[in-house]
Design a protein around this nucleic acid. Structure first.
Lengths: 175, 175
DNA sequence: ACCTGAACACCGTTCAAGT
DNA sequence: ACCTGAACACCGTTCAAGT
């Protein structure tokens, strides 16, 4: 006699994203997720292999959210960078998680495409991938350090971000 | 009647660094550290407040190790970048930890000084801090993504690293 | 002064039993 | 087919008792 489904993978992953943002990685427990979706912890194992798989699914979903924001930007390098930084400020825990896990290939591809498009005006096709990697690495590193509070020598961070972006653009243009 | 000390904070932190590198963050448990230094887990609480404090101490010690390597490089921007990348490849788990925790102020200052020195030839004093932040953010982001396996669109990573460095230098020189 | 065993709370995970 | 309570292993942490 089948029991009706009381939750779903999508609901579980969403609960995971919320709990992560509220309480950091250690707040994302199987028990807290189960409670939030209205089920007991052992039931989660019907939908996810283990906690690690759940965390990976949360990371992948968060990367998809980030990609949607990038795609909704105006497509310019500056617009993309602004959208990227706004997302990191909105969802610091999710942002951190995305870049400490190895997201699935296709989630990565979609976000890469948006970044590649934004650097095309500055470099020839042959160097587009390297240029995209440069911009992504800089923005990601900057935001991770900003979120971790690693910039402690004073100075305005908005200015530092703008300086970095302008310098990158200059270096790419002169290629 | 005093009991002789059977371990020390330094020994505990070193054991933590080794266990982290061997088994990742989840391999760094109070029990495994205690076993390695030849003591029972409760004894660790004589030297560290709790696990979180131990992890912070491990991060600080690892940042000191990284700084020593930077200071041992030839001081050029390229030499510094090479030393930075070599450290990340040697000690991936430690490298990751350093940039996901908030290291103590003075540990940060020493590594900042080495980076500031390496960018001085390219920018005027007014922009030295922003230039150092640009270089650090790029290198850190690149290495974190490389370690996380986030570069999956092919292409040579050595080339991408060299391209990034050359582009940064070009952008800074034209400032 | 430092070290330990015992104990507690909490977490991830498995599984037999329920519907 | 899905859900649950019970159970187990493991971890962080406290504390009274030992030397």
């Amino acid at each position: 006699m089948p029991t009706p489904e009381r939750t779903s993978l999508a609901e579980i992953v969403l609960a995971g994203q919320e709990l992560l943002e509220d309480g950091g990685p250690s707040g994302l427990t199987m028990q807290s997720v189960a409670e939030r979706v209205g089920v007991r912890a052992p039931s989660l194992y019907k939908r996810v292999r283990d906690r690690e798989a759940l965390v990976s699914a949360v990371a992948a979903a968060t990367l998809d959210d980030l990609t949607a924001r990038l795609e909704a930007s105006d497509g310019s390098l500056e617009g993309l960078a602004r959208a990227y930084r706004a997302f990191a400020h909105d969802r610091p825990e999710g942002f951190r998680l995305v870049f400490t896990s190895a997201p699935p290939r296709e989630a990565l591809d979609r976000s890469s495409a948006a970044i590649l498009r934004s650097v095309r005006p500055f470099v020839d096709e042959e160097h587009a991938l390297e240029a995209a990697r440069l911009v992504t690495a800089w923005a990601t590193g900057f935001l991770q350090m900003e979120l971790a509070g690693a910039f402690r020598l004073g100075g305005d961070l908005d200015d530092a971000f703008a300086f970095g972006l302008a310098t990158l653009r200059r270096g790419l243009e002169r290629h």
